[in-house]
Amino acid sequence: MRIRRVVTTRAGGASAPPYDSFNLGDHVGDESGNVFANRKRLAAELGLTEDRLAWMEQVHGRTATIVDGSETKAAEATDALVTAEAGLALIVLVADCVPVLLADAEAGVVAAVHAGRVGTRVGVVPAALEKMRELGAEAHRVEALLGPAICGDCYEVPADMAADVDKHVPGSACRTRKGTPGLDLRAGLWRQLADHGVGRIGVDPRCTAEDKTLFSFRRDGTTGRIAGITWVDPS
């Protein structure tokens, strides 16, 4: 089976500043009509119908939810979507948090995970891997992509916060380019995935705070959301 992965940018949509222009988040204050138009265009660009896009109500937790395409609205209060349904695209929205896209091509199981500081700390990625196992996936066959996120050079946090996250997800603590305590969530997640037996891990090195083609809450405050998307291509 062929696994598809897509990461959007902020360009090419209908939204006005400060959501310019391809904002896919419906919870950030953007006009609903613009978000609807952007999501409709997303489906068209992916070659899917709009009912084959699976969304979630992200809450910075560790809940992972299995979906099969029968859902009529976004999955409530969850930060990871998992499916074995071919042609169903799972979507995670971010503007600094790490979009984690997981796939076991042999089992035909994929997951999209919203891994911000809190979700990473409380184990949302291991929760997603466990749900994938319930559908027949095996960690040693899983491929992971850690998408664009705020980098450790930019993500400054209090020292006690960095130490706390690193205690739960070793490898996360770092120093920013200013020499202050920081977090590199992708580094911690890479190590966590490896510790869980995932052998193929890719990292998109783009920093959302530095790359103006991406949305960043830390940089801009009120802003839109890009998407990380994965699905099993049935063709």
Rank of each mutant, 00 (worst) to 15 (best):
E71L: 10
K73S: 14
P126C: 10
A77T: 13
L135R: 05
G69L: 09
A139V: 12
A105W: 02
E106R: 13
K131R: 15
V125P: 05
A89F: 05
G69F: 05
R52S: 12
E138W: 01
M132V: 12
D68A: 11
L46Q: 03
M56D: 05
A74R: 13
A77P: 02
L88A: 12
A64P: 09
A139L: 08
A86H: 02
D104N: 07
F36H: 11
V113G: 02
A95R: 07
A54L: 06
L42M: 06
R121G: 06
V82A: 09
A64L: 09
T83K: 00
A84S: 15
V92D: 02
A127L: 10
E138A: 14
N34V: 09
G123M: 12
E50N: 09
A127S: 15
I91T: 05
V124Y: 01
C97R: 03
D68P: 06
D51A: 12
M56Q: 15
G108S: 10
R133D: 11
G33S: 09
I91N: 00
T49N: 08
K40Y: 06
V35I: 15
C97G: 03
A75T: 10
G33T: 10
I91V: 15
E134G: 08
V98L: 04
D68F: 05
D30Y: 01
A139Q: 12
A139H: 12
E130W: 02
E106C: 09
E130A: 14
L53M: 10
A112D: 03
